[in-house]
Design a protein around this nucleic acid. Sequence first.
DNA 1: GCGTGACACGAGCAATTACTCGCATACAAT
DNA 2: ATTGTATGCGAGTAATTGCTCGTGTCACGC
Lengths: 203, 203
Amino acid sequence: MTTSRPGLRKSPQQERSKHMVDRIVAAGRQVLGEHGYERATTNRVAEAAGISPGSLYQYFPNKEAVLSAVVDAYSTEIAEQLTAVVTEHLDRPPLELMRASYEGLLEILESNREYVRLMARELPRARVAPHVDQLERRLSELVGAYLAVSRPTDRVKPAVSAWLLVRMVEHLCVQWVLEEPGFSRETLVDELMHLSAAHLAPT
Amino acid sequence: MTTSRPGLRKSPQQERSKHMVDRIVAAGRQVLGEHGYERATTNRVAEAAGISPGSLYQYFPNKEAVLSAVVDAYSTEIAEQLTAVVTEHLDRPPLELMRASYEGLLEILESNREYVRLMARELPRARVAPHVDQLERRLSELVGAYLAVSRPTDRVKPAVSAWLLVRMVEHLCVQWVLEEPGFSRETLVDELMHLSAAHLAPT
DNA sequence: GCGTGACACGAGCAATTACTCGCATACAAT
DNA sequence: ATTGTATGCGAGTAATTGCTCGTGTCACGC
């Protein structure tokens, strides 16, 4: 048995089944979106993928693995978009980089509202936590390193600033997208900028 | 059939069963904490309450109602503690009120870590949303009204400020309690004060 | 004491669900 | 063509779970 991907029962060896895993993951995403987490069953996923339950279990050892793969694929997709936006503006001055990042984040979240709803509302936090935690840690380290170099303030340690800013910005953006409160995106970005700048400003 | 409480099948009419509902709710809370949401079954709740499944269903129409009652009772408990702390310092100047509220919130969250873990990690957000949304709306209105009177800034509308501040403070405090990052409670409060003050400061 | 209704029980039903297994089929090499 | 193997099928199984119902018990008014 040759398992090249973790959580997979076997890797396809014939052409016709190369895309089976992806089809199952896509079907899982669809079922999760349409029926919600509690009504997401393996049989339903198989049906949505146009295959039989037996076939599904040739590629995934159990339900857990299927859902994990769905979350993983979706998260990776979003994380890649985010890093792309940030690296795109990495050479610009700090304030512009910040604003571009915030606007990029909102852009991504808004055009992936289904993903946001899934991760932040539908799925039990315990299942999403590993992925979100990892992303937040990575971002915190990145921001922390950036701040450690530019050292805009000595009131707070870079790591603390990074922790606060990452979680604050992320949560407010996610909530804004989900709740759609009665104020504009520019207002949100402006206020996030104001808050961030105030926090980083030297005493 | 006399139903005085919503979601209850009947209200007790003999002394020995007056506390049945509370016992069931307490058992539900315990089961939820010990076994997690996915393994919380009605039979387990009944067992934890020391009664039979049949008895449970004399007071609750279905599983949903039991869990709802658990979340409701728990939330009410916490909300009362919070409002108590705030009203305790309502006569003091704004900045002191703010600091006292933040410290009170953290005090409450820290001494109810099990509750926080349950609401923010264990339960699917969709189940908690009604309660959390209601609390957040109530808080936002309260803060909004307070800001509308004192009008510390005209850069942002009071409602917007309230929305931002409530969600920011709540989320950062909850995350701080859950993640236990490497910095002190005073640091957190100081930075929350700094952020809030900066946001509210006039241009 | 006795009768009545509230209360409690717990075995078990009906439905759901994760997962399997024996069999059919498509493919590649000989 | 034939054979060996990878792939796919889908009815079926064992276990779980929400919930019921027939039966029994206890408290209280008479």
